[in-house]
């Protein structure tokens, strides 16, 4: 399937690169529908990879790359089901999204996240699976999960640990603060900064460059420098599920979902 247009994302091939565009209002919150379409993409990826040298993941929405997991869906799931069933549902969701993230992480082509604006939580985790992160000057990153009594659940901590020093991981995780693109480049997450509105163009130029090299060599180099921390990723799911079952999480989610103030994205 060379082209696809779904409810939450679309993909197409442009000049030898696959462009996966996120477009679920208001800011690409990742819930069940997005997961299903990501699974569809991952299923199509082996075929797409034969005829492409790079994958660019970007957002078409002004607000940003992605605000992360769909917390409303998570909250409603918790309320609609008996606790044991809700927890089983959360674990199943996490295992499925981890399978997607792992497949993207290991994709045999060069993957580029072209991010702008809000790149929070699960959105940040999606960017972290990519080989190269290119960020618009106005991009902002955050792992806000501790505010809800949770940890990042889509593979964020193991992948952040893979890329940056543990002291930085602790600062970002334990404070839940957001940080700008200069900080992201300083700590080694972002490799290129683009002017406002130019991240996709810069990503396309980068995709064009990586397409000049032998695919097998690129795949071998990638496998060598970018190991997937499978054991830590599994442990992350266990810790997340353990935390999710506490009453404090339901309360944190309820506060976020019912917040009608102007500051839900501020701590």
């Amino acid at each position: 399937m060379n082209d696809f247009k779904g409810q939450t994302l679309s993909w197409q091939k442009v000049n030898g690169a696959i462009e996966l565009a996120l477009h679920r209002d208001p800011c690409n919150e990742i819930g069940t529908r997005t997961l299903e379409e990501l699974e569809k993409f991952v299923a199509a990826l082996p075929g797409l990879s034969n005829e492409a040298h790079a994958l660019i993941i970007h957002s078409t929405l002004k607000a940003g790359f992605s605000a992360g997991a769909d917390l409303r869906e998570l909250f409603q799931r918790g309320r609609a089901m008996e606790k044991g069933a809700a927890l089983r549902g959360v674990r199943e969701f996490l295992e499925r999204i981890h399978a997607v993230m792992n497949a993207l992480d290991a994709a045999p082509l060069t993957t580029i996240a072209a991010v702008h604006g809000v790149t929070f939580g699960g959105g940040f985790e999606l960017a972290l699976v990519c080989d190269i992160m290119i960020a618009d000057r106005m991009a902002r990153f955050c792992f806000p999960e501790l505010r809800l009594g949770l940890i990042p659940g889509f593979g964020g901590i193991p992948r952040l640990k893979r890329d940056v020093g543990n002291a930085v991981v602790r600062d970002l995780l334990l404070t839940g603060r957001s940080f700008n693109v200069m900080k992201a480049q300083q700590i080694g997450l972002v490799s290129q900064i683009a002017a406002e509105g130019e991240a996709l163009r810069v990503a396309r130029a980068t995709a064009s460059q990586v397409g000049k090299f032998d695919r097998r060599t690129t795949a071998a180099a990638k496998e060598f420098v970018k190991p997937i921390p499978h054991e830590e990723l599994k442990r992350e799911i266990d810790i997340f599920c353990d935390l999710y079952s506490r009453p404090a999480v339901e309360e944190g989610l309820r506060k976020f979902v019912e917040n009608e103030g102007v500051q839900p994205y501020l701590p």
Binding site: C27, V118, M138, S178, F179, N180, V181, V262, Y265, L266
Partner: peptide
């Protein structure tokens, strides 16, 4: 709204060449 406030914060950080954690704006 809060998303635009984050945008303003980012612009201010760039302008003044500082890092201002958002919890200081609570």
């Amino acid at each position: 709204d809060s998303l635009q406030a984050l945008d303003l914060l980012t612009r201010l950080e760039h302008h003044f060449r500082i890092e201002l954690p958002d919890y200081e704006l609570q």
